[in-house]
Write a protein that binds this DNA or RNA. Structure first.
Lengths: 186, 186
DNA sequence: TTCTGCATGTAACCAGTTACATGATTGC
DNA sequence: GCAATCATGTAACTGGTTACATGCAGAA
């Protein structure tokens, strides 16, 4: 628990950045397995700063726009490393509302079920395509990522998203196959 | 949103049951994609009952133990069907703290990274084995589930869990392969 | 000058967890 | 008699979302 804390520590550990930068990061690569809105991030930054895990300098953009550029402290880096080394039990399975609907589909007509399934399939395919584009963008931009660098781990995590979404799609296809075996059996 | 509501409606729609029964269901098959504790379920049952979506009769167990057996009303069944037919955008990606740790593993030694990875792999394998046992238990107990029955959908959902966990394991194995390519390249 | 993006915050609410609290039943 | 399990609830808290609220900077 308290994992947003470590997500933020990990980001400001890579380089000093503003709350806005951090918010953006959660919509980019890291957003493939952790999301957070600015309304959660700003209060957390205040907590981390008052706990001495990060600190900030005010930078002026243009004439008078103030931005707070946060960087990690030794104490913060310590807590981050500590958390990275802790071994925790598997978290509960992710809640999944498509699965919940399918589970109760005994109440639907076969047509409605197939619409439910095909709708989900289309959305999952779109998500998969986005991830593949991200991966290809990384592969096209110069050398393959050097082992154990941030870019390397980013690459692995995008790959992880692709595996996850591909498996979801494979499962849905299997579901389609099984729900249609009366049609195809004849 | 408000999805616990529909999970409960779906269950009491299958057959009348107590809060305790519902709680148990969330630790069994449905627990592979939705979890809830009794402390969340009882208040929700009160809300659903006062909204007229379910109703209960008090049954006496033994001498004086009262249990409330809830059943669905027409209004409740209607809302359930309605929800089953609604099409919603994909929910945000599930939060995943192993992925978060791996993402920031640039701060770990290669040994620590491999411990992190192997620890996760072992836990995922155990979860996968449980799911496979559930599936085999279903397959062994008599006929294959009849299409479009609750048992059929339960079967599909356990299969879905297996696909999900298997993909996670496949990804971790790929990560292992990539993080060891210096060793194996020579 | 107008629109998009940069930048920071708070308040109210909702979902979910942990802990507290109690008591009956059944099988050994 | 004791332990496991059946049975139902509440309170305090944490994490996260939605909505409210404001204002500057840079580019067209």
């Amino acid at each position: 628990m308290r994992e947003l804390k470590y997500a933020i520590l990990g980001l400001v550990n890579r380089s000093p950045r503003t709350g806005y930068d951090i918010t953006k990061a959660f919509t980019e690569s890291i957003g493939n397995f952790w999301e957070a809105k600015h309304s959660q991030i700003y209060p957390e930054l205040h907590r981390l700063a008052s706990g001495g895990l990060i600190e900030y300098e005010i930078e002026i953009q243009g004439e008078k726009l103030e931005k707070k550029v946060y960087s990690i402290t030794d104490k913060g880096r310590n807590e981050l490393l500590n958390w990275l080394l802790t071994d925790e039990p598997l978290p509960p399975v992710p809640k999944d509302s498509f699965r919940l609907r399918l589970y109760f589909s005994e109440n639907l007509s076969t047509l409605a079920v197939s619409e439910l399934i095909n709708g989900q399939l289309a959305k999952r395919r779109r998500r998969l395509e986005h991830l593949k584009e991200e991966l290809h963008a990384m592969e096209d931009s110069g050398e393959p990522p050097v082992l154990f660098t941030p870019e390397f781990y980013e690459y692995l995590l995008i790959m992880g998203g692709i595996f996850r979404e591909q498996a979801y799609i494979n499962w849905i296809n299997e579901v389609k196959r099984l729900t249609k075996c009366e049609e195809t059996k004849s």
